[in-house]
């Protein structure tokens, strides 16, 4: 019986996997592995913009802290889900949007909202610091864990409160005489979050012109 013939079995086993290895690994690599930035012929704007060093460092914290397990970074097309209606982007995201990411973190879970354009939707660094310190401050009812370990609570120095100290009120305020300041990690992470913008006009994903509503 043929199914008792070892070599044929081996060959079949190897060829079947080889098919999708070529189709879903090598082919995409050929098609998408060398995408480059796009320069707009009218405005000379370049998309997607490269990320500054500070934000690049922040991306490593985003990875290390596992933000991807609750937040996606992909906007689905119009008419498919409510991503655009929720204001998570002005257009769908496409392959080219991710060419600068060292680790592409599309995500598969929306326990929290999508962050593709969080830098555009919420550009206020102070908001991000307070949100990270304790999400209940800015988003009551959120189940995002507090990231107080990204901050330092220290005594207020002789020259008064530091300029970068968080504005915390009521139940969230630190003990009297102390202040909460972001660590380097928090600064880099927030720089990364503020850099998240994927709404440049691309030929394969134009931004709809009547978008301002």
């Amino acid at each position: 019986m043929t199914m008792s013939y070892g070599p044929l079995l081996f060959l079949g086993i190897l060829l079947t996997l080889a098919s999708s290895w070529v189709g879903l690994v090598l082919m995409p690599h050929r098609q998408l592995g060398s995408l480059t930035q796009h320069t707009d012929t009218n405005t000379a704007a370049i998309f997607p913009a490269a990320r500054a060093g500070e934000a690049q460092q922040g991306a490593e914290h985003y990875r290390s802290l596992g933000c991807v397990y609750c937040h996606t970074q992909q906007v689905r097309p119009e008419g498919y889900g409510s991503d655009l209606e929720r204001g998570w982007g002005r257009r769908r995201t496409v392959s080219r949007d991710y060419i600068h990411d060292r680790t592409v973190m599309l995500g598969t879970m929306r326990t929290g909202p999508d962050l593709t354009n969080i830098g555009e939707r919420q550009s206020d660094a102070a908001w991000h610091y307070r949100h990270l310190y304790n999400p209940q401050i800015t988003s009551p009812g959120s189940i995002m864990p507090p990231h107080a370990f990204l901050f330092e609570t220290r005594a207020i120095g002789p020259s008064g409160r530091s300029t970068n100290a968080l504005v915390l009120e009521g139940a969230f305020a630190p003990p009297a005489g102390t202040e909460v300041v972001p660590t380097r990690r928090a600064e880099q992470l927030v720089a990364y979050l503020r850099s998240l913008k994927s709404s440049g006009d691309l030929p394969e994903a134009p931004v709809k012109k009547e978008e301002a509503k």
Binding site: L24, L32, G33, V104, L106
Partner: peptide
């Protein structure tokens, strides 16, 4: 030798 861009996602889910 991480591949570039969303090819990572393809390899990841493959």
């Amino acid at each position: 030798e991480p591949v570039r861009g969303v090819v990572q996602a393809a390899v990841n889910w493959w």
